[in-house]
């Protein structure tokens, strides 16, 4: 903020607390404030939050693993939504699913759609990494030299993927009529089933990711490569392979999130932009490069945005995420879980 002016940890936290209290005080004075709406905002905020979190985790994973901010990450989200939609329509509208399982419900098709979005985007991510990013990250002998070229490559990739999607699906919005059943009532809040799916799937996948990273050998390898390519090489990890795995997992998560969001909004080729920015804000708020931070940042942005939209004004909904990001950057530049300095071997 000021040159040579640095806040201490304690002061940072105090300021964050003050900001939170002012914010809570402000929205509690809103005329719309009551228990009912508060419950609604909480549930919706957490639901959007876990989606932001899943995309943000991917951005952070790629950042730690490849030393690059993947600006085309939103496009994998969008392509994932289209993959899910296409698979779902193929199964349900084509009545294929009923030919195989006569008693099937809509959710069977949706689960298969989610699965395909995850797998297809994962494989597509690996392909993109191998073909487009690998020649750039390889330059300089190691895999740590990632410069401006790769950032520009990310933007270029984003434009190319967007235009490809535009040719295939045209710019109109495609409704995703997932037949998931009637809305349910949770503690007095009526929640469409699509939200419940986001909530449950989102948490399940986040839990599975935690298990994968902390309890499996491959997860240990991913964490090692994310910290240092050189030491990973020296302990015998196939680093290029793991870089592909990291990129693939990140893209798979984005694709899954796309299909989770699809039925609630609409599926349209532009949907990747705004999610990229929101997920980016989440990652920054949580602490760039930190995976738990990305999830917590997602919740924070989701809750902040939803409560502002509901209690203050819904007309600037997309700006709130950035307002929050700017405040956090000013007060606590490392984010909640930020690492001060990334150690590099």
């Amino acid at each position: 903020m000021f040159k040579g002016f640095k806040l201490t940890r304690k002061l940072e936290n105090t300021l964050m607390l003050v900001f939170t209290l002012i914010f809570l005080g402000y929205i509690s004075m809103s005329p719309d404030m009551n228990l009912e709406s508060l419950k609604g905002v909480l549930i919706i905020g957490i639901t959007v939050g876990i989606i932001y979190g899943l995309v943000a985790v991917g951005i952070s994973l790629i950042y730690t693993g490849l030393d690059v901010v993947n600006f085309s990450h939103g496009e994998f989200f969008m392509l994932g939504a289209f993959t899910g939609l296409t698979v779902y329509n193929f199964l349900i509208d084509g009545e294929l699913i009923y030919a195989i399982f006569p008693d099937a419900y809509g959710w069977v098709g949706y689960v298969i759609g989610l699965f395909f979005a995850f797998v297809v985007m994962g494989l597509f991510g690996v392909l993109i990494e191998r073909v487009f990013l690998r020649p750039l990250t390889k330059k300089g002998g190691g895999y740590t030299v990632a410069g401006m070229g790769i950032i520009i490559c990310g933007f270029g990739l984003s434009v190319v993927l967007l235009n490809l999607a535009y040719i295939i699906w045209n710019p109109t919005a495609h409704p995703f009529h997932a037949d998931l059943g009637l809305p349910i009532n949770i503690g007095g809040v009526t929640l469409p089933m699509t939200y419940l799916w986001m909530l449950v799937t989102g948490f399940t996948v986040a839990g599975a990711l935690y298990f994968f990273l902390n309890k499996t050998k491959m997860g240990l390898g991913v964490r090692a490569v994310a910290h240092s390519k050189v030491i990973s090489n020296l302990v015998g990890i196939n680093v290029p392979l793991y870089i592909s795995i990291i990129f693939g997992i990140a893209c798979a998560l984005a694709g899954l999130a796309g299909t989770l969001v699809g039925p609630t909004y609409q599926v349209v080729v532009y949907m990747g932009y705004i999610i990229l920015l929101k997920a980016f804000a989440s990652a920054v708020v949580g602490g760039f490069g930190s995976l738990p931070g990305a999830i917590v940042g997602g919740f924070t942005v989701g809750l902040f945005e939803t409560s502002c939209a509901f209690f203050i004004s819904g007309s600037h909904k997309d700006a709130y995420a950035f307002l929050l990001m700017i405040v956090v950057l000013l007060i606590k530049p490392t984010g909640f879980f930020g690492v001060q300095v990334k150690m590099k071997a």
């Binding site: 050998k217 240990l220 964490r223 090692a224 910290h227 240092s228 050189v230 030491i231 990973s232 990890i237």
Partner: peptide, 14 residues
């Protein structure tokens, strides 16, 4: 050079 954010055991496993 170690993996500072991992335990001694995890470092050895790596």
């Amino acid at each position: 050079d170690v993996f500072p954010a991992m335990t001694v055991l995890e470092n050895l496993k790596l």
